[in-house]
C-alpha cells in the first residue's frame, strides 16, 4: 500500500529531454515561467503553449500523465476561473442578472488564467518527470554554488535533501513493519472512527520517530568513519557535463521567451 508512494514522480527514459543537463533544465524552467508571465493577453500564451506541447512531445511521456498532474488542482482552477468571471467589471456586459455582471473582459481573463496555470503545472511536471530527484538535488547544489560566498549552506542543504531521499524507502518499509506489529497487538489503524484512528496513529509515529533518531545517530557515525567533513575540498563521482545539445535547447528557450515579449508589446 505504502510502496506505491513515489517522490518526484520520475519516469525513467532516454528521450532528448531526459538526457539534457539538469542544470540547464532548471534554468529553462525558470525562463519558461517568466515566459508565461509576460503580457496579459491570450495571444501571449500561444508562444508558451507551443513551447509546452513541443517539449511534452519530445519527452515521450504520455499526455495522460500530465492530465494526472493537473487533476488535483481542478478545484483551484475552478475557483480562479469563477472569481475572475464574476469580479471583473470592465468591458462590455455579456450577461446581467440582478447583481451578477459578466463582462467580455471577465470571460477573457478567466480563460487566460486557467490556461496559464495549466501550462505552469505541465511545465514544472515535465522537469520532475524527466529528472530523477537525486540528479535534481545535485543540479540545485551546483546552481546555488555562488551563494556559498554569502555563507549560505548550499552543500549542507543538498546533503540533507539527498539523505532524505535515500531514507524514504527505508522509512516506508519500517512504517509497514510497525503497522503490522501494532495491528498484531490489536491496534485499530484501518478501522474505527476517525478519532480512534487518529489516536492510534501515535502508536505508529512514536516508534517511527525514535528509530529515526537512532538511525540518524548511526548514520552520522558511519559518515564520520568515511572521513566526511562538510563540503570543503570534496570531489564528485557524478559529473555533470553540458553538451552543444544543452546550449541549443537553452537558445531555443530564449528565442521563445523573446517571441513572447515581442507579442506582448505589439
Amino acid at each position: 500500500m505504502l510502496k506505491d508512494i513515489t517522490i518526484g514522480q520520475y519516469f525513467p527514459g532516454s528521450s532528448l529531454i531526459h538526457r539534457l543537463d539538469p542544470r540547464f533544465k532548471i534554468v529553462m524552467t525558470v525562463i519558461y515561467i517568466l515566459m508565461l508571465f509576460t503580457g496579459s493577453r491570450l495571444s501571449c500564451l500561444i508562444v508558451g503553449a507551443v513551447y509546452t506541447v513541443m517539449a511534452v512531445l519530445l519527452s515521450k511521456i504520455p499526455m495522460k500523465m500530465f492530465m494526472k498532474s493537473v487533476k488535483p488542482l481542478m478545484p483551484f482552477l475552478l475557483i480562479t476561473a469563477l472569481i475572475n468571471l464574476f469580479l471583473v467589471g470592465t468591458g462590455a456586459t455579456v450577461y446581467k442578472w440582478r447583481f451578477i455582471n459578466i463582462t467580455e473582459d471577465g470571460i477573457n481573463i478567466s480563460i487566460f488564467m486557467v490556461i496559464r496555470i495549466v501550462l505552469l503545472i505541465m511545465g514544472s511536471s515535465l522537469l520532475t518527470y524527466t529528472t530523477s530527484p537525486i540528479t535534481l538535488t545535485d543540479a540545485i547544489e551546483r546552481l546555488l554554488t555562488p551563494l556559498k560566498k554569502l555563507k549560505f549552506p548550499v552543500h549542507e542543504l543538498a546533503m540533507m535533501m539527498s539523505i532524505a531521499l535515500r531514507f524514504i524507502p527505508t522509512l516506508i518499509e519500517e512504517t509497514e513493519k510497525i503497522m503490522s506489529a501494532q495491528k498484531a497487538r490489536g491496534a485499530e489503524i484501518d478501522t474505527g472512527s476517525f478519532m480512534t484512528r487518529a489516536k492510534n496513529m501515535a502508536a505508529i509515529l512514536v516508534p517511527l520517530f525514535i528509530s529515526s533518531f537512532r538511525r540518524a545517530d548511526e548514520l552520522a557515525t558511519a559518515m564520520e568513519c568515511r572521513c566526511y567533513h562538510g563540503g570543503e575540498g570534496r570531489t564528485r563521482l557524478r559529473q555533470l557535463r553540458s553538451s552543444p545539445r544543452d546550449y541549443t535547447a537553452l537558445a531555443v528557450t530564449i528565442v521563445f521567451y523573446a517571441a513572447a515579449i515581442v507579442i506582448a508589446h505589439i
Binding site: I134, S162, I163, L165, R166, T170, R214, R215, E218, L219, T221, A222, M223, C225, R226
Partner: peptide, 14 residues
Amino acid sequence: GMVFQNPDNQIVSS
C-alpha cells in the same frame, strides 16, 4: 575503515 551492524544506517547515497 569501519563497517557497522545495520546495513541500512551506513549507506548514504541512493
